[in-house]
Nucleic acid binder design. Structure first.
Length: 281
DNA sequence: TCATCACCTGGAGA
DNA sequence: ATCTCCAGGTGAT
């Protein structure tokens, strides 16, 4: 039984996993690392380029994933409601910097920071006489000052981004090696970078490093778990999740939602934010 | 070990 | 207009 034949770009892009996308006259334009992705609707992924197929995780066994996560009733409802919503496999460096910038900020604001970062330091590309700027590489950002980053509106995140760039250039953070690690080691490795805690590490792992059991626990996720799963996931009365609570909560989450928990998170997050009429890009 | 709190900044709501 | 408040967290007390 086929479950989700076509990708719904609107759902996928407006579900909090990417920031540098715009819809311009029936086409979607997105920045992924040094690539500009252009998608026309109806989106035929089989006919798309290799980088687009990789970005939209065409290699996933979606039937297996969806039938797995649907065993939870609420997720099942969300999968139906947001049919065509997919997880994305982003450029890891872009994802890493993006989510460091996401800390205590809003989606629109995060996008603005990243756009400025691209405009200031990224490569320029032209497409049908439109100008785009790609995401700067770690090497390109190696010598930027905190002041440069502040001018992009990063605020207190500027110093974190600078250190994060340095960690990559020093080889302390190697994405392809993290990709091969098990979930726990990968998480701990990312968390050695200042500005990256559990939640942000989980976002980076889920959205760029193929760790499908990652389930970023933020304000919204907490709210969802409390609201729809009373008594199942305990220990989060307050706002702050301690280290210990986060990891024990995560264990229970994987137990409940399964090895593709991250995929179910994406549907639930989308559902609850829409329900509360929160804005996306 | 755990709760609180400050943190840059822009945009939304009063 | 002007102001306050808050936003997909994190690190320091």
């Amino acid at each position: 039984m086929q479950t989700n034949p076509t990708i719904n770009l609107n759902f996928t892009i407006n579900s909090g996993q990417v920031f540098l996308w715009d819809k311009i006259e029936d086409r979607w334009f997105g920045i992924n690392g040094d690539d500009l992705l252009v998608i026309e609707e109806p989106f035929k992924i089989e006919a798309s380029s290799k980088s687009v197929r990789r970005f939209f995780r065409h290699d996933d066994n979606l039937d297996k994933i969806l039938s797995g996560i649907r065993r939870d009733n609420l997720v099942g409802t969300a999968v139906k409601q947001f049919s065509g919503l997919r997880l994305i496999r982003q450029d890891p460096f872009q994802c890493y910097i993006s989510f460091i910038c996401s800390s205590n900020s809003s989606i629109q604001n995060i996008k603005n920071m990243l756009v400025r970062l691209c405009q200031k330091f990224g490569n320029k590309v032209e497409f049908e006489d439109r100008q785009f700027s790609t995401f700067p590489s770690a090497e390109r950002l190696a010598n930027v000052t905190t002041k440069d980053l502040l001018s992009c509106g990063l605020g207190f995140r500027a110093k974190y981004v600078r250190e994060a760039v340095k960690a990559v250039n020093l080889g302390k953070i190697e994405f392809e090696s993290i990709r091969k690690m098990d979930y726990k080691s990968a998480l701990e490795t990312l968390k050695t970078v200042r500005g990256i805690g559990n939640k942000i590490a989980d976002c980076i792992l889920l959205f760029s490093l193929d760790k499908m059991e990652s389930f970023p626990i933020d304000r919204w996720t907490q709210r969802i778990l409390q609201k729809y799963y009373p008594g199942i996931f305990d220990g989060m009365h307050g706002k702050s999740l301690t280290e210990k609570k986060y990891s024990s909560l995560h264990e229970k989450i994987v137990e409940h939602f399964g090895p593709y928990a991250g995929y179910s998170q994406q549907f639930l997050f989308k559902m609850e934010r829409d329900l509360n009429k929160k804005k996306w890009l």
